[in-house]
Every structure is written in structure tokens, then in C-alpha cells.
Amino acid sequence: MRTFAFARADSVARAVESQQGDPASAFVAGGTTLLDLVKLDVMRPSRVIDINALPLNTVERLPDDRLRIGALVTNTDLAYHPDVLADHPLLSQAILAGASSQVRNMATTGGNLMQRTRCPYFRDAAAACNKREPGSGCDALHGVNRMHAVLGGSSECVAVHPSDMCVALAAIGATLTLHGPRGEREIEFADFHRLPGTTPYLEHDLDNELIVAVTLAPPLVPLGAAYVKLRDRAAYEFALASAGAMLSLDEELIGEARLALGGVATKPWRCREAEASLAGKRADTAAFEAAADLALADARPLSHNAFKIPLARQAIVRALRDAARRAREDDA
């Protein structure tokens, strides 16, 4: 394992300052991605800055009733937080559908946003990968690409964004607070992760900044939410296709709907056209199937993963159906 220098940050400002002028430095929070990839020689930080002592580990309710989650809140604590369970059950469900107990105990909210793809060619330092080594090519395009993306890919990269939590955040809507050398700024979660395009090595919108908080949009009322994750084994496995759905119902008519996909796209995938198609419709299978077809209209299979399109369609229909059932229960 490569060596690196180490520093412990005792304030957000000093953590950010410490990173400036040292582009090869990396923050460590849970360490579940960073140390895994350092061992594989995929990430090669010259310096690791431990941010665990920073006061970013609380969930607070803002005066406008939104929930503000500190970047260091662990995935486990977030999933079981009473306010999250009450307002955003989709977030809880998605987190608990991912990783293992141990990893959820270590992994943090900010770190989850920063996790790297599980593409086996990215994780193999001997393979061609434009994300790991710009310009080296993409061995996944014509290799074993069963797990890869059918949405949002490019001729340079088809790696899937692996997070379950981020699928829920995409559906719920969230604002990220970033701290950089020029102070704090806020950006929408939807604008944080980038499509690979011709620059797959640029994965997000950070500019020498540290994620300090994630503030969730207000919940839909009455709320029905469901996260459906389809995978090769029932636990501790990444999604082949997943769907996070939220619905509000007025009698049997859909008020507002939210839909996001995981396991099939290069970034957490919000389906706005599908959402719009559901507004005002009866909450029935025909509407859900039509929405699923819209959500997947641009899907393009690779040589090994055409099965993902019907699989994702089923995940969407089931998530919307379960969300509608729960919305009825919530209203009862």
C-alpha cells in the first residue's frame, strides 16, 4: 500500500485551507471508498486529511421545517433518525438497502455522495479506464458490461453511479452546502454529479470544497414512498436496477410524483418527464407503466445488459405501486 502524509483537521476552514495547493490530497471521513481504492492503487493521495473531528455529525430541523444533515452523519444514524423516518422514509429505505451494517456504520452522508463507481475496469489498475486514467480508453464498452449503465453513458465511460442513498436524494430533492476557500455556497443535489461525456474523470461539481451539509426538500403530503432494489443476491449487493418513488394522492388522483433510478445510470437519475406524466392521473398500473416507458425512452443497452431495461421498468412500476399504496395508508 502506498504511503501518504496525514493531518487531522480541527475546523472546516482549516480542513479546506489544508487542501489548497495540494490537489493530490484527499479528505477521509468513513474511509470505506478511499482506503479500499488506495489498497487497489486506484486512488493515490499524497496526503490524507482526517475530517472526523469536525462538528458536522448532527441532523437538525431548520425553522422552515426542512432537515439539515451534517456531512459526517453516518449512513446508519441517518437511516434510523426519527425525523428522517417520519419525513423521508424513502431515504431510510434506500440507505438500508445498500452496503452492510459495518459499512453503513462507517460511511458518512458526504462520503456517500463522493463514492466511486464499482466498474471492475475502474477498480483494476491494469485496465483501460478514462475515469481513472484520462485518455486510456474504456475496456467496459466492449468488455463484460453486464453491470454498466444504459442511461447517461458516453463513448468514453459507461460506469454506473453505485449509491442507493443518492437515488433517494435525487427523488426527494436536496441542497448541498459546500465550504471552499471563498466561503460557503449552496448547490442543488441534481447539479452535483456530472455526466461522463468526454470528461469522465470529472465526477462532481466540487471546486476545492468540502461538503458540509445536505438539506432535504420538504416532504410531499400525504406521502407514499418506496425504494425497490433488484440485484443478484438479496443483501450486500449493488443494484442491477433500482427505483425510488414518492407520490402524493388526492383521493385516487396523483398530486405530485417523484421518481429516480439507480443501478442503470452514470449518475443518480431523476426522471422528470415521467414525474410530469403522472401528475393528475389515476394511480393505476397503466399510468405507472406509461411513466416507466417515458423514464426509459432514452435507454441504450450495451452488449451484455439489455436485460436491465425491462428490469428497470418492473422496478419503476413496483416502486410507484408500493408508493401509491403507502400514500393511501398515510391518508387513511
Binding site: 496525514f6 477521509v28 468513513g30 474511509g31 470505506t32 482506503l35 479500499d36 489498497k39 487497489l40 490524507v48 482526517d50 453516518t74 446508519t76 452492510s100 451494517s101 459495518q102 459499512v103 456504520n105 462507517m106 450486500y236
Partner: peptide
């Protein structure tokens, strides 16, 4: 040695964690 098997599980402050993924 990559957080996938759990053989290295210890408690850190009472929480189960993979000792192989922690400095």
C-alpha cells in the same frame, strides 16, 4: 481486506466496523 467479508469486524465506540477499511 476490502470490507466485503466481515472477518475483520471489531467495535469502534460500540459500532461494528471493518477494521480493514480504517486507518
Amino acid at each position: 481486506d476490502h470490507g466485503q467479508c466481515g472477518a475483520c469486524t471489531v467495535h469502534v465506540e460500540g459500532r461494528a466496523m471493518n477494521a480493514c477499511l480504517r486507518l
